[in-house]
Write a protein that binds this DNA or RNA. Structure first.
Lengths: 137, 137
DNA sequence: ATCTATATCAGGAACAGTTCCTGTTATTAT
DNA sequence: ATAATAACAGGAACTGTTCCTGATATAGAT
């Protein structure tokens, strides 16, 4: 069990209060208001530690930096090809795809990692063409 | 349409003949047998180009380097938590999860990216404990 | 076949994101 | 209070990837 630290507690609280899945850099920039001398290494070390403890979740989207989610309840994520934002989805109960994947497979399927992508509500409404489209594929 | 190059053709052929989804580094090491002076930059540039042309697929597993697949037909991948190998799965027709994900969502779900994980056939049989387990989660 | 224009190349520097190392500080147990 | 040690700040180092430069290979026109 790790020793208490004010920095780690502040990182945990910061993530718990945000719903936009910030990057390590964003966490760092915001925490410097409270801890002007905090280092990026500390942020990374504690994000890794909190992930290992299961208190936050790490999202590796495959494009750009990893993001972190203070909500550890099981849920899926949506990545917008227009603006790159990452949103939570209310869909649940996709575990049956593990069964489907395990048919005709000699190993053991223990889980899956799924990101949905498309156009977020904001990019769907504002039909402006995007200069620099973001894509995860 | 890009100009022909022997290096790119060799990369395409190499990937078409392999089913283990090699990394850029693996492609580079193998191609140096035929092209002793080929550079890693050339390998990366052509892997990116072939991916954009839709002739290969890029797999970003979130742990370690990206991998590349010469098989562009739609299929899913399995990542072993034991040895880190990446295998093709025969499962098909999971597109219904896009519909599920789109319910109660104001944006447009255009697709999904899914990796299954667990124990591969080899790691399931050989129950030796693994020294350095590999995990995508 | 030769020439010209240009895409691709090899080599290496630069880059982004992340991890690791060192000496110092904060936390916990005694 | 003191001692032991986990966590810290700062920065160097690392990994995977992209970009830049001058040289070479390819394709199209002659």
């Amino acid at each position: 069990m790790p020793k208490y630290s004010r920095q780690r507690e502040a990182i945990r609280e910061f993530l718990a209060a945000r719903y936009d899945h910030p990057t390590a850099e964003t966490v760092y920039r915001n925490l410097r208001e409270e801890f002007p001398n905090i280092s990026l290494g500390t942020v990374y070390r504690n994000l890794t530690l909190l992930t290992e403890l299961g208190e936050i979740r790490k999202l590796s989207t495959g494009a750009g930096p990893d993001r972190f989610d203070g909500n550890t309840s099981p849920h899926y994520h949506f990545i917008c090809n227009g603006c790159g934002c990452v949103l939570d989805l209310g869909v649940g109960g996709l575990d049956h795809i593990n069964i489907l994947a395990g048919q005709n497979f000699e190993g053991v399927v223990e889980g899956h990692l799924t990101y949905f992508y498309g156009k977020c509500p904001s990019c769907t409404k504002n039909k402006k063409p995007i200069d620099k489209p973001f894509s995860v594929v």
